[in-house]
Computed example of a mutant assay.
Amino acid sequence: MRPHRPLLALAPLLLVLGLLTAAPTAPAVAKPDPDWVFYTADTTRYTSPWFAGKHRIMIPFGCTRAPYYSPDPRCEDERGFHHGIDVAMGCGTKLRTRFWARVVSNDALGPAYGSSPVVLRNRKRGWDVVIGHTRKVLVREGDTLTPGTFFARASDDAAPDGCHLHFEKRTVGGGLSTATWPRPLLRLQAAS
């Protein structure tokens, strides 16, 4: 049986319409959290393999004017020292691993990290990463995570300045005093 000629003439138009309606739509932009406070002049939005979307840094690593930290001798003007990077993002933003990692105990962390912070260890690379202010944690101590594993969401749990994630890089099994600049681990890239 031969196709009807008028239907053949409409085939390209139907194909284009089908492609247009099937095209993915741009993701909705998260509404800014009214509690966000930024303690940096950096207004760049960054992407990372660790989280979805493009987000600003709230508190960078190092000396800060953020009021939550005790004066530190490394800092001028009675400033405190922030041992990680806080990245502002909407509550519920998905968090994924960048490397193989094992979930280890968070018992040594205080309440400032929230009620369910995640500590990931990669012995081969020589680090622990502490991630504070997480919710809906989908992993347990002892789990081994592969790169790209969705394991938690961002929240404002114990965060006085709105929804965000706190990333801290420490030596394996090390305490707060072993924290180092976490930016290379996060692979933050300025969004275009």
Rank of each mutant, 00 (worst) to 15 (best):
A26N: 05
A26R: 11
A26T: 12
A26D: 02
P27Q: 02
P27F: 01
P27I: 06
P32R: 04
D35V: 07
D35M: 13
W36F: 01
W36T: 10
V37W: 00
V37I: 12
V37M: 06
Y39V: 12
T40N: 12
A41C: 01
D42A: 01
D42N: 07
T43N: 14
T43H: 08
T44V: 15
T44C: 13
T44D: 09
T44Q: 13
T47E: 09
T47F: 00
S48W: 00
S48E: 02
P49N: 04
W50G: 09
F51C: 11
A52S: 14
A52D: 15
H55Q: 12
R56S: 11
I57W: 01
I57A: 10
P60E: 02
P60L: 04
F61E: 06
C63Y: 01
C63Q: 08
T64Q: 10
T64D: 10
R65G: 15
R65T: 15
P67Y: 01
Y68C: 15
Y68S: 15
S70D: 13
S70E: 12
S70A: 15
D72K: 10
D72I: 12
R74T: 08
R74Q: 04
E76V: 14
D77T: 03
E78K: 11
G80N: 04
G80R: 04
G80Y: 02
F81I: 07
H82Y: 00
H83A: 14
H83E: 08
H83P: 00
H83N: 11
I85A: 08
I85V: 15
D86H: 11
V87G: 04
A88H: 02
M89L: 10
G90M: 07
C91N: 05
K94D: 10
K94G: 04
R96G: 05
F99E: 14
F99Q: 12
F99K: 05
W100V: 09
W100G: 09
W100H: 04
A101F: 03
V103R: 06
V104S: 03
N106A: 15
N106T: 14
N106V: 06
A108L: 01
L109F: 00
L109V: 05
P111H: 03
P111T: 13
P111M: 05
G114W: 02
S116P: 00
S116Q: 13
P117M: 09
V118G: 12
V119H: 10
L120D: 05
R121T: 13
N122L: 12
N122Q: 11
N122G: 05
N122C: 10
K124A: 15
R125S: 14
R125K: 15
G126K: 08
D128P: 08
V129C: 09
V129S: 11
V129W: 00
V129L: 13
V129T: 15
V129K: 04
V129D: 04
V130E: 09
I131P: 10
I131F: 03
G132M: 08
